[in-house]
């Protein structure tokens, strides 16, 4: 009987795929690694100063409070006024960096992709030279340069610096997008009555919008998070950007951890929102259906 039973229901034992499991374990660790600090940041931000310093720590706040957020977003008190000013400074610098970056990177990338001119390869690789060195290497030279140009203590110095760092990546990324747009589309537009510029604006630009959005996010985040240059170039309080300004929560005698954490959380909001809203552009197929492959 037993033999017959085995014959009827053969035991199918799939071999355990150890690689797959190793991958899952790795991803779980990676997730904990990234999510735990975020979770702890949010939890701390809704604690009172006393609760935040308790030992052993309160894993879950016993009396959650949003007071820290109210304080930061209330322009009537000093802390709120400063925080909102830093926030605005950061936003203003990042936005200008992004806009200027796109304005420069789009035509540059298009030119690298479409035109053959003397020195093209040399220029194209020389935009990468900046990326071969750590940012700190340029700190002193740039500071001296900014002082010579009278730009120290202005947001202009930051915008210029961020552009220097952001543009190479933007140009390379966008060139890839333009390379993928068939040149026949522009040729067709030009024959259909468009000037070269109109063909670019009406046909190529809409097709490269996912690329433009992706590069915008990169340069916005780069500028938004930057610390060292902002710390070096700016000394006046009212000009500070958020990463530098947040330091003010470390005072001589005590650190306002809940306040620092809520400020950090608020600082991460624009970046997260940007990603969530625009992430579909990262994956959208570019010229699907444009040409038959």
């Amino acid at each position: 009987m037993a033999a017959i039973e085995t014959a009827q229901r053969p035991v199918v034992r799939k071999p355990i795929d150890w690689w797959r499991w190793a991958g899952r374990v790795f991803l779980t660790f990676l997730m904990l690694f990234t999510v735990l600090p975020m979770a702890w940041m949010i939890l701390t931000s809704v604690k009172s100063q006393f609760a935040a310093m308790q030992y052993p720590p309160q894993w879950w706040p016993s009396e959650p409070t949003l007071n820290n957020y109210f304080k930061l977003l209330d322009p009537t008190n000093r802390i709120g006024r400063e925080f909102l000013r830093y926030f605005w400074n950061s936003f203003y610098v990042s936005l200008l960096t992004t806009i200027l970056g796109v304005v420069v990177a789009v035509p540059a990338a298009y030119a690298f992709s479409r035109f053959r001119f003397p020195g093209r390869t040399f220029l194209f690789f020389s935009v990468l030279v900046r990326n071969m060195f750590p940012a700190v290497v340029f700190l002193m030279p740039l500071f001296l340069l900014m002082r010579w140009m009278g730009l120290v203590n202005t947001h202009g110095s930051l915008i210029l610096t961020y552009l220097t760092f952001g543009l190479p990546l933007s140009i390379w990324l966008l060139k890839g997008f333009y390379d993928n747009i068939p040149i026949q589309l522009e040729q067709a537009a030009r024959i259909d009555g468009a000037t070269r510029f109109q063909a670019f604006i009406l046909i190529v630009m809409p097709l490269s919008s996912p690329g433009i959005i992706a590069t915008s996010i990169f340069s916005f985040i780069g500028a938004w998070n930057e610390y060292v240059y902002a710390y070096t170039f700016l000394s006046r309080d009212d000009q500070m950007t958020l990463p530098v300004g947040i330091q003010r929560f470390f005072t001589e005698f005590a650190t306002d951890w809940p306040g620092l954490m809520s400020a950090t959380f608020l600082m991460s909001v624009p970046v997260v929102v940007l990603f969530l809203v625009l992430q579909k552009y990262f994956v959208r197929a570019l010229t699907e259906g444009a040409v038959k492959h």
């Binding site: 026949q184 024959i191 097709l207």
Partner: peptide, 16 residues
């Protein structure tokens, strides 16, 4: 655009 011609491309070049 000023030559008053129309062109059909091998890959059609339709505006996607």
């Amino acid at each position: 655009k000023d030559r008053d011609i129309a062109m059909v491309f091998q890959n059609y070049a339709l505006y996607p």
